[in-house]
Write a protein that binds this DNA or RNA. Sequence first.
DNA 1: CTTATGTCAGTGAAACTGATATTG
DNA 2: CCAATATCAGTTACACTGACATAA
Lengths: 157, 157
Amino acid sequence: MGSRGSDATEIGYLVKQAQAVLNARMGEALRPLDLTVPQYACLEQLRRQPGITSSELARRAFVTRQSMNVVLHGLAERGLVTRSEQPGPRKQIFAELTDAARDLVDRASERVAGVTTRMTQPLDEAGRAALISALATCRDALGTPLGDGRAEEKTDD
Amino acid sequence: MGSRGSDATEIGYLVKQAQAVLNARMGEALRPLDLTVPQYACLEQLRRQPGITSSELARRAFVTRQSMNVVLHGLAERGLVTRSEQPGPRKQIFAELTDAARDLVDRASERVAGVTTRMTQPLDEAGRAALISALATCRDALGTPLGDGRAEEKTDD
DNA sequence: CTTATGTCAGTGAAACTGATATTG
DNA sequence: CCAATATCAGTTACACTGACATAA
């Protein structure tokens, strides 16, 4: 570990802190709608891409299928998500938002947007663009998601 | 919602995703040491500032005292943390790392540094500095942590 | 009396691992 | 047989709220 101008460790901390505050504020904003942050994230993802499978949802949230399934089933029981009766090619089950959910997600998105807007308020346009770019780069730099258990080339350990 | 050049919502997503991947990778890196990410964060904070109280630890992690106490007690039971017998001015109890913990945290830090370094690898020096600055700005823009229930509006710290 | 601390008790959402069945 | 899906079962770390006692 030589000399770094900008310590990478510091970035790790800041990502964690920023996400912690963001998560707390989002949770507060979503509570009146009876939604948790993971639930909202799941719904929002479904709005952006209807008909997605739970496995794909899990990949995008960087969690296991089993974890995502808990959230997804909870949402289905609340009538916010429908799951296709007819499995697809690979036994896939496709999820979609219900009309009630679409309305709810709209309101949730407004509230969340208020939080994120406030968070990025002090940044100028260029700074915002740079932040988006840098965060995407960091996300991709850490490579593949986490599989189910097997099937994952052992990197180094 | 309006059309902005750089959507603030996108930043929220990226913060979440980046943190999710980072958290996953850190968890994998720390598992061989039998440490969870929150545990490591707690230990690292204690190394940086020995003698800190659990309430202060909680504030920095943006969680409640009760939540932090669970982590802290777990670490104490494992002999990684000592807690002062003599309460301070305000009934405070000060925590410190044990020698065993110091050694463990060293190894943990190396592993974590490997992850964060990999994460920021594609960025150049200027980009890293800009990211640090922007993240700190975002974190601070969302204001104070969450107290215990009452007592907010404490701007100085 | 007010405030900050530590603590006990309970709850809950959501992550994990492991195993199994099914389909292409 | 292999790969990817869905699912069931169990565990766990860790967040929350609420309530209480204590000390400055």
